[in-house]
Write a protein that binds this DNA or RNA. Sequence first.
DNA 1: ACCGGCAAAGTGGTCTGATAAATATGCGGG
DNA 2: CCCGCATATTTATCAGACCACTTTGCCGGT
Lengths: 233, 233
Amino acid sequence: MDETAPQKGTVTQRAIEQIKAMIAEGRLEPGQRLPTERDLAARLGISRSSMREAIRALTVLGVLEARHGSGIYVTQLEAGDLLETFGVVADLSRGPRLVELLEVRRILESTATALAAARITPDRLAEVEKHLTAMNATDDPEEILAHDLAFHREIAAAAGNDTMAAILEGLSSRTFRARVWRGYQEEGAFTRTRREHAAIHRALAARDPEAARAAAAAHVGEVEEWLRDRLAR
Amino acid sequence: MDETAPQKGTVTQRAIEQIKAMIAEGRLEPGQRLPTERDLAARLGISRSSMREAIRALTVLGVLEARHGSGIYVTQLEAGDLLETFGVVADLSRGPRLVELLEVRRILESTATALAAARITPDRLAEVEKHLTAMNATDDPEEILAHDLAFHREIAAAAGNDTMAAILEGLSSRTFRARVWRGYQEEGAFTRTRREHAAIHRALAARDPEAARAAAAAHVGEVEEWLRDRLAR
DNA sequence: ACCGGCAAAGTGGTCTGATAAATATGCGGG
DNA sequence: CCCGCATATTTATCAGACCACTTTGCCGGT
């Protein structure tokens, strides 16, 4: 006769699932505001502390957004929101998994670049070119890295698949790039990187998907191989 | 003269970053036990409630694991641990983003299947075959789905890239498959699916990466196209 | 000396209540 | 009609207590 659920897991875990379910079932729309912490806690029959833990969890997952003094809202649930956590994988990975991540990036980036070659608009291509020249015009590693990131980000965006772009963004997170690229470029890979970027841009300008795919794969593959070698030692 | 940090963001957010940093810097090893909640809170100068929120957040991210009565531990930080949250993306996506997710899956799955064709061991191939026959031997949709998932999971594992396998696992999460596959198979796609699975298995048995890639791409692409059509209406 | 069980200490899980800080609201004056 | 300020609402944080589960080690029996 026990009316109260099966009691599986912690109350916080259950609260997380219930809120997720509300969103999945459409009872909570993107951007919509939730009841207050106190209301929600009372409604699910748990304490405010536990409810806050659930909300915090969903916040770091990019599902909810808490605004101090205002309320709790469902995010737009766009790819960028939900895949932000992908960055922690890159940040906390080391050794062989870094190679695996680069392999995934190579696969996705080469496809994205190929798609971009077929779909990119002239103004976006100009934007890509801007970052390319800016990247080649400075010696500051920080600035180079920033334009490098932007260069690939524009291309990923041009591919027209936001989800893919968001994943690639995570795989190129600032700290990840900094950790791997640093060593790579210290070995005088600047000129090679420059040439590879030029090749990618050329393929995009020529609207040649296959060339773009090959150039992007080679670009990431170079780093991948370098890292593989370095780990072998 | 303010000795206390820049105060950016909430204290909980800062605690999350600090613990993440400890792990990234190697001061916390995989599997290692952390100080108690009370100690950690005191050490960072915050309340236990806030510390608990930070721990809960890192728990859902698959970075930490709390064991009631025992303590808090760093997970093994393997791909599977950290990418578990990828499933929520699939669970909370709808409309056009489902197509995008399928596109990502098609790209990764086709590559994974190609790699598997080159690397799969005989006993793992036998395992794949087992799920194939079991899938064809029953009419229960639930059982078919389970073997379908296992079929692709074995192949992804054989590709030798745990990270890729973990991502694919998220893209094939039970609820995701259930939502999309349901509609797809209701339209009598069983026989077609069966043929496609057979083609994939044949390519694996023949150790033919290109055939495997094509078969896998076609397999996912079929569903992708169906979903695209369905959304267009 | 070994072993089984039991008690106590340690630790995460939950609840309650209070205060601070940021935001939203509504009213009154210009 | 609009601006500004007092007030209410809401999240952020803290403090302290108790419960549930796990681990540890002692103690008695064999």
